[in-house]
Design a protein around this nucleic acid. Structure first.
Lengths: 146, 146
DNA sequence: GACATATAGTTAGTTATGCAACCAATTCAA
DNA sequence: TTGAATTGGTTGCATAACTAACTATATGTC
């Protein structure tokens, strides 16, 4: 049992570990080299708006697994960059609906290509089956803890 | 091919995604509930010092996958908490050797138990084989990108 | 209608990360 | 042995994260 726990302890370093940040940093670098001056955190917000424009900040919280203050500032910074605009909802005046600008729409294809390319690099030598298992493990870890 | 890429795109959200931060947050909460006022980032530094005391900051960089400024500040904060002490190396006066205090040594057993417990919760319903595959995928992702 | 409660979003404070520029000690080479 | 390059560490700046406390709108109950 203590042996088993030690093995799990090793996994801990991988999960908190740096595969994800290595990927984030690589993607960020690709953006920068192509003159795209957004952070991957900002990109992850745009990612969900590209799938569906006009989400509320609360919906962005759920979609990106962030808390409210985090989304407030990410939207602040995206607004400064003129990539989104807050629009007060008419049905519920507490809500801000976040709308993409034309500039943000233009970023979609370009950055999605870079993201896919980064993923191809990252997943070199990994089979589709292993990917599925890894996805499902990470999903269960998340579900177990949330 | 584009189908394949879409599947990978989904993985991206899992890898950058929040399994790791969910685990970190849970462990942090466990610490707090037991009156242990350190962050999991600070804990991850102590973790390596428990395995081997007196590492240099550079060695802590490699061990924790962080850059030099990050370690400088984490050690700053650990020093404020009187959990470590910087000691200039006698062989190479550029180096700080980081030594655990007695207070830090006392934290080891307690926090390791909590970490193992958090991992057991996180890995509920995941087989040992799946864990191994997941570890190996994350390791390859890291190696592909570093 | 009035008060309690819940929900959407913001603000303030602390910690952490990445990058770039920097200083100081060491090593290497002409 | 002197000058260049390397290595270990620090500082400044910007972005982002979590917690807690706050405002404002909306809902629900008596």
């Amino acid at each position: 049992m203590s042996n088993n726990q030690f093995k799990k302890g090793e996994l801990y370093s991988f999960i908190t570990g740096k595969a994800s940040t290595a990927m984030a940093r690589r993607l960020q670098k690709n953006f920068k080299q192509h003159g795209i001056e957004i952070t991957i955190e900002q990109w992850s917000v745009l990612y969900h708006l590209w799938k569906q424009d006009g989400l509320s900040q609360q919906e962005l919280c759920s979609a990106t697994f962030r808390d409210k203050p985090s989304i407030t500032r990410l939207v602040d910074n995206l607004e400064k960059l003129k990539l989104v605009k807050r629009v007060a909802s008419k049905e519920d005046r507490r809500m801000n609906l976040i709308n993409l600008t034309e500039a943000a729409k233009k970023l979609q294809d370009q950055t999605m290509d870079m993201a896919n390319q980064t993923l191809n690099e990252a997943l070199g030598g990994v089979t589709a089956e292993e990917i599925e298992i890894c996805k499902s493990v990470l999903q269960r870890v998340y579900d177990n803890l949330k």
